[in-house]
Nucleic acid binder design. Structure first.
Lengths: 139, 139
DNA sequence: CGGCATCCGAGTAGATACTG
DNA sequence: CAGTATCTACTCGGATGCCG
């Protein structure tokens, strides 16, 4: 496992102090972490974002195939949310049959870059998590 | 808004290709993104991780105060999961009254560093998201 | 103090059928 | 093709009470 130095921990704490400083999670006021992260960290939304980063442009049914297991309802809901928040654009071509294309905005790409670092971490440490779980279960 | 160059987009696509290459999200087999990210990206777990990064060690009720709005049940559930996955340790001191302390493991810190980048993005772009939503609503 | 057991209500996901 | 509509099922969260 990669090591984490005390110095790095301190840096993290400092960043957190800065973050917490002007949000104040204790009050009921708007909190970007709870709001932005809520959607952004949703299981389905993550997969949608990743696939739209991989394929520059995707249509509804194509996306549905890639995001294995998602239902029509949930997919269209998530797409609407992600569009609303500015992460992607929806372009409709009134042909017959109709064609709709989804692609990331620059804002979406900016977010994806951060998200990607997390998912990379997840893929490379997934086996450790599994090991930890087993150990915990038998303990 | 910060700009995203085509070159950066390409880099992202390459990373994604690498990730997708040896996971194959289309099959039902284990997928670290869906698994690891599911917990790690949970709204409450995120807040727990952040506070444990800020305060090196926290007790149950202290944590409950900081993670505003969380119930006993959910907090203890999340703590157990996070412990099981190896992100934090639970230390019990059999005093009276009992004292229990939670703190991040090195593994947890490693994860937190990545998570933090995402939440930093969220806090600094939260207003943009709000603006986008308003624009979308009136459009 | 630090939980767990229990119950209940709301919301959300999923399946299916249907439409412009 | 790209969704919407509808209905059901079920998970999940919140509240409460209790106990070591």
């Amino acid at each position: 496992m990669e090591t984490v130095t005390d110095n790095q921990k301190l840096k993290v704490a400092k960043k957190l102090k800065k973050m917490f400083g002007h949000i104040d999670l204790k009050t009921e006021t708007y909190c970007p972490i709870r709001d932005v992260m809520a959607l952004a960290s949703d299981k389905w939304s993550i997969l949608i974002m990743l696939y739209l980063g991989y394929f520059p442009v995707l249509r509804f049914n194509k996306l549905k195939k890639y995001v294995y297991g998602i239902s029509n309802k949930v997919l269209s809901e998530r797409l609407k949310m992600l569009e609303s928040d500015g992460y992607l654009t929806r372009t409709m071509y009134p042909e017959v049959p109709i064609r709709v294309e989804y692609q990331l905005t620059n804002f979406g790409h900016s977010y994806l870059r951060k998200l990607l670092e997390l998912t990379e971490w997840a893929t490379s440490h997934g086996d450790t998590v599994i090991k930890n779980r087993k150990k915990f279960k038998t303990a």
